[in-house]
Amino acid sequence: MISNYRLSNPLSPFMPLKRHHALVVQIAKRDVMGRYRGSFIGLLWSFLNPLFMLAIYTFVFSVIFHSRWVGQTSGHFDFAVILFAGLNINAFYSECANRAPTLIIENTNFVKKVVFPLETLGWSILGSALFHLLVSTIVLLAFSLFVRGSVPLTIVLFPVVVLAFLPVMVGTIWLLASLGVFLRDLKQAIGVITTAMLFLAPVFYPITNIPGQLRYWMYLNPLTEIVIASRDVLVWDRMPNWTALILYTAVGMCFAWASFAWFQRSRRGFADVL
């Protein structure tokens, strides 16, 4: 039995989260705990991993390359803070996008259970990725406090930026999860695409470094606006571009709705292929 959702409702992509929130939390929690099960220090790795990566970025870019962010006054370690703010967003997106193509394939047992709401799986891996984003952001703010002696007051707006990103994220998961059932090579292609998206977003450089006409094309990358907005509130202590963020959210909602509709239509063939 396929869960009945009114696809004419623009909020239908969020109905699975409302109906099955307890199940979403349970699966997300199991996913996080399962990732570190059997390791000596367990969940502590979720804090150590971003801490180690931040230390490496700081050493390579600040100590070896002496990198500075063009157009901003930067201290010795400021570049690492700026870089890490963008890399966290990329890591958040890549974790979901790289896992999505095999999401249904790895949960074939759920496909064959007629009472299980498959649409909750997308929200669950998104919840797992949100946990890792939260941990990485805490590490970033702690390092920023150590380096700069303070953190921006605008950090309270970071959840708003993440909320604007969620429709694009969950839409990507549903689209890739459904396509991955029929196109088994998709997982390999997504790895290349997410790497390309990292370098085609203003993660390692400011958007102003891109020539005027090419700069507009950069905004076709779904990471671009969120990376810029995240830096605004986490690093630069300034308001994000609200007009751009609202437009981004609106486009993301349309994308999430279209992906959810496709997922609901295509899931009828999952059992036959698997």
Results as ranks from 00 to 15, higher is better:
Pro152Gln: 14
Ile104Phe: 10
Met197Cys: 05
Leu54Gln: 00
Arg35Trp: 00
Cys254Gly: 12
Val156Gln: 04
Gln188Pro: 11
Ser12Tyr: 09
Ile207Gly: 04
Phe143Gly: 10
Ala177Asp: 11
Phe84Asp: 08
Leu87Glu: 08
Val181Asp: 15
Phe263Ile: 14
Pro50Arg: 03
Leu118Thr: 10
Val151Ile: 12
Arg37Thr: 07
Ala250Lys: 03
Ala261Gly: 03
Pro159His: 00
Val60Pro: 07
Phe61Cys: 07
Pro167Glu: 01
Pro167Ile: 05
Leu247Ile: 05
Pro101Glu: 02
Ala189Lys: 04
Gly75Trp: 09
His132Ala: 08
Ile64His: 00
Val192Ile: 14
Ala55Cys: 15
Ala258Gly: 08
Gly212His: 15
Trp123Tyr: 00
Leu83Ala: 11
Arg268Trp: 02
Asn109Lys: 12
Phe77Ile: 15
Asn98Pro: 00
Val235Asn: 09
Asn209Phe: 08
Ile246Pro: 01
Ser8Tyr: 14
Ile64Thr: 00
Val168Arg: 15
Leu245Lys: 15
Ser62Tyr: 03
Met197Lys: 02
Trp45Asn: 02
Val111Asp: 02
Phe158Trp: 01
Leu176Val: 00
Thr208His: 11
Ala129His: 15
Ile138Ser: 07
Gly171Phe: 14
Leu54Ser: 05
Val233Leu: 10
Ile27Glu: 11
Pro117Ile: 08
Ala271Ile: 11
Trp236Gln: 02
Pro240Leu: 14
Arg68Glu: 06
Leu234Glu: 07
Leu198Arg: 13
Thr224Arg: 08
Val162Leu: 04
Ala177Asn: 12
Met169Arg: 13
Gly34His: 07
Ala80Cys: 07
Ala22Asn: 10
Gly122Ser: 15
Glu95Thr: 09
Trp242Ser: 04
Ser124Ile: 05
